[in-house]
Nucleic acid binder design. Structure first.
Length: 663
DNA sequence: GCTTTACTAGTTTTT
DNA sequence: CTAGTAAAGC
């Protein structure tokens, strides 16, 4: 098949140029819906078709799902594309660090700390240092972790981070600075890595010339998607890798930068041109996704930003229907209406998975979840806590961690506290014994005589003994431990059946691993989510679900019909973020991202009444919409969607009879 | 008196 | 879901 013809048939001139320029740096400024995914997909294909080895191509994306999608689409034309390394900076960091662990002085296997683990360790160190004893308020463990993390990701001192994000803790700068040092020391001494380390250590490796040379020679063609949401370390990693060959393509859109809170800097887009002065700039402005009325709204919203963005999107699609704005009585009304509308659309023949409902924060989607469940409409929520961070999965993983490392204090803590009659004090006591003795079996056995919790300890003892028999497969270990955990799960959670199916998923994933250490590290560090977990948890086999998503998680996605709900000022933009101009601007870009997800129809809605802290408040429309000129771009209507006017379905006597009959 | 358990309020976005 | 607090249990 003639590759040039394939490209010509599928790409516009700007896209074609981006795809076929393979030597030297390029910056592709790609507005929403302008086909940047297509550019990456075909560029991958073009490189491979020119005989470039797939192993020398590196594709860095924002989520692993994005990489997988692009590569599998390219692979439809040429199988070789499957062998390209594609993933997030974090997963790339993970694989390089694993390869060079010894160069960093780390022993393999390395243990990996998830977010909660790192918070816990930091807080324990703070206690040890006596920082929490003072009468004055000390930050929570979440705050401590986020300050330390921000300091790494933004390359700023603790003092600067505090000044900007937590000025009321500024007086603690010295303490937290010290804590940061202690935390790093702790991780190095205990052979531990956290998420930030995946970037930090990758950069450190690249700062050693021989290693950098080797990696730079290996990855001769580098592509980075969503460049506007990379942070300082990530940009530096790209520059270091591309230093010699300069074959780097960065794709991004400064108007879609929405991860500032995580250290992302859209300035990286401009800095790219300083680092690579000869970079070719290609702008994609023809929008293939949305209709013109939808783009008119998107353009008007972003035009009112303080900072000027250069692109104006022009639609290729000509439909005339304006986006609609509905004002509802309260969030329940809003949810009921959206649910009914979704049914209506489904009856018109639109598949559910072509519909997306977006919101600023997860709680805004809750009423809709209820409304959809009531109507038995399958849905899936994007965003929120990850699979491995749900309580029941963390519980089971902690048991597995003990098998991998019998001296893992954090894991023991969690495991012991699950036993009835054991709280933090008793758990500490037992853990101290285990650390001192070194043989957990002996210790557990001695505690199994306690009248309060002895029986529970005995069961745990049996399960751990069985699971630590040599030569068991990972799947067998997981299975033994989950058999032990199941009764605990049932006792602890009302919705244990749903959670039990997650446990089954974990067993499935375990089957793919040969060593328990790799299983644990990969599960936590690079969560094989997109592949296995997402595919395994298919609750509704007959019908693809409608997607409910935070706007952040909707990045890069599109739907035929999009609802954006909860457009009340204070909820969106979030009230914390209206004080500083910088944060408010990011909220505006977030709204822009939400609007540009829609292909054909866009429904905006706001509940008039809301509740906060027990009192009813009346909402104002989201400030990005509350503007005469913008409202002109919308069809506005008020809906009082009530169910009170249903005919009386049961009278009191009948109701009583029915209920008793059911018993 | 020490520990565990039960309850309640408030909740931004995430690799 | 978790931090903080009140109540219950040994």
């Amino acid at each position: 098949m003639d590759i040039k013809k394939l490209l010509k048939d599928n790409l516009n001139p700007a896209q074609y140029e981006a795809v076929t320029t393979i030597d030297g740096p390029i910056l592709v400024v790609a507005g929403a819906g302008t086909g940047k995914t297509r550019v990456i997909e075909y560029r991958v294909l073009y490189l491979v078709s020119k005989g470039i080895s797939p192993q020398s191509i590196l594709l860095l994306t924002f989520t692993r799902r994005a990489a997988r999608e692009m590569l599998s689409r390219a692979a439809r034309h040429n199988k070789l594309c499957e062998y390209i390394y594609g993933g997030t900076f974090h997963s790339f960091g993970f694989s390089i660090i694993s390869e060079f662990a010894t160069a960093l002085g780390y022993k393999r296997p390395i243990s990996f700390l998830d977010e909660a683990d790192s918070e816990e360790i930091i807080y324990r160190l703070a206690i040890k240092l006596g920082y929490t004893e003072k009468k004055k308020r000390f930050p929570t463990k979440t705050t401590l972790k986020s300050v330390i993390s921000a300091s790494f990701n933004r390359g700023e001192s603790i003092e600067n981070v505090l000044l900007k994000d937590y000025p009321h803790f500024l007086h603690l700068a010295k303490n937290i600075e010290h804590l940061k040092e202690e935390y790093v020391k702790y991780k190095i001494n205990h052979n531990l890595l956290d998420y930030d380390d995946l970037l930090i250590y990758l950069r450190l490796l690249l700062l050693k010339e021989p290693i950098r040379k080797r990696l730079s020679e290996r990855f001769r063609y580098i592509m980075v998607d969503e460049f506007q949401d990379t942070n300082k370390i990530q940009a530096e990693i790209v520059y270091l890798l591309g230093k010699e060959h300069k074959n780097v393509m960065a794709v991004g859109d400064d108007a879609q930068s929405i991860y500032g809170f995580r250290g992302a800097r859209y300035e990286n887009m401009f800095e790219f041109l300083d680092i690579f002065p000869k970079a070719k700039i290609i702008k994609l402005e023809e929008n293939y996704r949305s209709t013109q009325p939808i783009l008119n709204l998107a353009n008007a919203v972003i035009e009112r930003a303080k900072k000027k963005y250069t692109k104006v999107l022009v639609a290729k699609r000509e439909e005339k229907e304006k986006p609609k704005l509905f004002i509802f009585k309260d969030p329940q009304n809003e949810a009921e209406w959206v649910a009914e509308k979704i049914i209506e659309l489904r009856n018109e023949g639109i598949p559910l998975h072509h519909i997306g409902v977006l919101f600023r924060s997860l709680y805004l989607g809750r009423p809709l979840e209820i409304a959809l469940s009531k109507r038995l409409i399958p849905y899936k929520v994007y965003g929120g806590i990850r699979f491995i961070e749900t309580a029941h999965i963390k519980d089971l993983i902690s048991h597995i961690k003990i098998i991998a490392n019998p001296l893992d204090e954090l894991a023991w803590q969690r495991v012991l506290m699950l036993i009835e009659g054991i709280g933090p004090k008793t758990a500490d006591k037992i853990i101290n014994e285990i650390i001192k003795n070194g043989n957990f079996k002996e210790v557990l056995f001695s505690f199994s005589k306690n009248p309060r919790y002895g029986i529970g300890i005995k069961k745990l003892f049996e399960a751990l003994k069985e699971a630590s028999i040599e030569r068991l497969s990972v799947a067998e270990i997981v299975s033994i431990l989950s058999d032990y955990y199941m009764p605990i799960l049932e006792r602890k959670y009302d919705d244990y059946q749903r959670r039990a199916s997650d446990i089954e998923s974990l067993k499935q994933i375990a089957m793919g691993y040969k060593s328990i250490e790799t299983f644990l590290v990969e599960l936590i560090a690079i969560e094989p989510a997109e592949k296995s977990i997402d595919d395994i948890i298919t609750l509704y086999e007959d019908e693809q679900p409608v997607i409910l998503s935070t706007i952040h998680s909707a990045k890069g996605l599109e739907w035929d019909i999009v609802f954006i709900i909860g457009l009340a000022d204070g909820h969106f933009p979030v009230s914390h973020n209206v004080m500083s101009e910088e944060e408010l601007e990011e909220e505006r870009r977030l709204f822009y991202v939400a609007i540009t997800r829609a292909k054909t129809k866009l429904y905006l809605s706001v509940p008039h009444r809301g509740y906060r802290g027990g009192i009813t408040i009346f909402n104002r429309l989201c400030r990005f919409l509350d503007d005469g000129e913008i409202l002109k771009l919308l069809d506005v209507s008020e809906k009082d969607y009530l169910f009170e006017d249903y005919e009386l379905a049961y009278d009191k006597e009948e109701l009583l009879r029915k209920i008793l009959e059911e018993l």
